[in-house]
Amino acid sequence: MPWSRFDRTYEAPTGGRQITYCDALREGIEQAMSHDPRVFAIGLDADDKFGVFGSMRDLTHKDRVLGTPISENAMTGVALGAALSGLRPIHVHLRVDFMLTAMDQIVNYVAKWQDMFGRQGKVPLVIRAIVGRGWGCGAQHSQTLHGWFAHSPGLKVVTPSTPYDATGLLLASIADDSPVVFLEHRWLYKNTGEVPSELYTLPLGKANVLHRGERLTVVANSLAAMHALTAIEQHGLDVDLIDPRTIKPLDLDNIIASVQRTGRLMVVDYDFPFGGFGAEVVAAVTERSFDALRQPPVRLGFPDRGMPSSGVLERTYYPTPERLAQAMTSMLLGEVVRS
């Protein structure tokens, strides 16, 4: 297994090099393809000049980047079949909404293949999708849905928020012998951050503490984590901000330890609320650490309806750092905040 050769973890960025989230993803894919000839990428428009919003542009191993017809369901099965036949595919979707046409393959096949046969085999498959709002994109081009994928046993769900996490978690996902759904928020693509130029992976299932504080635990992933960090820093709030980085496996121990210190929990979940990731975190913390909670836990996220298009409606629909700051401040004042 060539992947074992660089099983190297950095606790925090070590170099000074700053690159964008998009370039961090691209670098991870380039490194994976150079490192292992079994890695290939497949997807609708994967091979066009835009290179999946730039994350796969000008790759060295063009022969291992395959465009596909608009047949997401079968192409997911193709990727799975290839993973069962000696390759390590990366199936990429320009929007998570398109990926839904493949839910039969993702849930019935990809997620279940190992359990169905007594976990005897490997399924080294990464399914990448770009998630989240664009600009007036409406209900079918703006979804996130990480909670939905996490609902299905057999899928790991990774939602990097920083360039550093993007590379390290992507390489860990490609190296993993089980299926991983890797969700990248399009509004993070231009963010910059420190990324080591040498190969490294980050562990799946280990949270990252983005801000230390004593009076409130905020759990937030992906774009929500960056918005929460902005809110905390701009308003100087005494908040512990935990980015789980992987929704599944979920680093619950880290979250519980924080709540036991702060006594308060808010989950910022940029997804639909019903039965979602936020609900899961609140339920798990309540079950395991009920006595530590001084106030009712709070979930912040989207309304329980499809995304609108008009800018006026979008600005109401989507949370912002300012609204997160208001909610955190209210909670810190002991006020009841509605989910």
Binding site: R38, F40, R64, N73, A74, M75, T76, G77, V78, A79, L80, G81, A82, A83, L84, S85, G86, L87, D104, Q105, N108, Y109
Partner: peptide
């Protein structure tokens, strides 16, 4: 659905020249 998986096996054979 398993039809697609067989096509994936064929793709693996083609890409690996096996």
């Amino acid at each position: 659905g398993s039809i697609a998986l067989a096509v994936g096996a064929g793709l693996a054979a083609q890409l690996q020249k096996q």
